[in-house]
């Protein structure tokens, strides 16, 4: 593992001050994690992938969790979305405790409250792009007409109308990720969780996807994204730095200058 330089907290402090100065009230938290931990046991060896994480994400916020490979960011995201269970700690979704829900109840909750976008898209290979998205709509209980209407809207917004009838293997990486995004958003979830959404994309597709995420953020969608890519992280309102399973710092981004500064510092950090 590469040695990581000390976190630049000065940017973080400056960002928080500007918020207070502008009188911005913190919005209600969509998701909150308290003392979250996740340990794996492999051949008798305990590995703590997540250690004592505290996290709050307000409604409408775009948060990026950034760190090197193996720092536990994906594990954290999976716990937040109910794909995995924490070893310790609590998770609240819209103020309701969810970490102890069984798999069935989490599944029902995920249908309407959580949208997931994965690095490798995770589309069903033998369903068309349209069916992949409509299926998610139908599972949440929407009638076919409604699921189809929402799908069409999303496809129009995402530029996917031409490929609606194609299977994922016939789509480019960028197209697949946009279909995955459409699937994640078809039920207007409370929170969108994205695990390295651009990890498997070329630069142009990366830009497309990031623009889309910003666009939905601007429309009020709450997004938590994990990435190891500084450029991707810089699209967020807030970047949380993670190392060895713990948060080690946080940066709030108000404007493009903050963004550039953050980007530079993060790039420096990476170097």
């Amino acid at each position: 593992m590469t040695a990581i330089a000390p976190v630049r907290t000065d940017i973080l402090v400056a960002a928080r001050s500007r918020l207070k100065g502008k009188g911005v009230q913190p919005m209600a938290d969509i998701i909150e994690a308290r003392g979250l931990a996740r340990a794996f046991v492999t051949d008798g060896v305990v590995i703590e992938a997540v250690r004592g994480v505290e996290l709050s994400v307000a409604e409408g916020e775009f948060v990026a969790i950034m760190g090197p490979s193996g720092c536990g960011k994906s594990t954290l995201l999976h716990i937040l979305g109910g794909l995995d269970r924490p070893s310790r700690g609590e998770v609240f979704l819209r103020g309701k405790r969810v970490d102890s829900l069984n798999e069935g109840r989490w599944a029902r909750l995920r249908r309407k409250e959580v949208g997931f976008v994965f690095q490798f898209f995770n589309l069903i290979n033998n369903l068309s792009a349209a069916d992949n998205v409509e299926l998610a709509g139908l599972l949440s209980g929407a009638p076919l007409s409604e699921a189809r209407r929402r799908r069409r809207e999303l496809f129009a917004a995402l530029g996917l109308e031409e490929v609606a009838g194609k299977v994922p293997s016939r789509l480019s990486g960028g197209q697949q990720q946009r279909v995955a995004l459409a699937r994640a958003l078809v039920n207007r979830p409370a929170i969108l969780l994205a695990d390295e959404p651009t990890g498997n994309l070329d630069s142009e597709s990366t830009r497309e996807v990031l623009n889309l995420l910003r666009q939905y953020r601007a429309e009020g969608q709450t997004i938590v994204l994990v990435t190891h890519d500084a450029r991707v992280a810089s699209a967020a309102d807030r970047v949380i730095h993670m190392r060895d399973g713990s948060f080690v710092g946080e940066t709030r981004i108000e404007d493009s200058r903050d963004r550039s500064r953050l980007l530079s510092s993060l790039i420096d950090l990476e170097v």
Partner: peptide, 16 residues
């Protein structure tokens, strides 16, 4: 297995 994981991630319960 992968499809099952995907379907569960978008809301299919184990019983389903």
């Amino acid at each position: 297995q992968r499809d099952v994981g995907i379907l569960k991630s978008i809301g299919l319960t184990p019983v389903q």
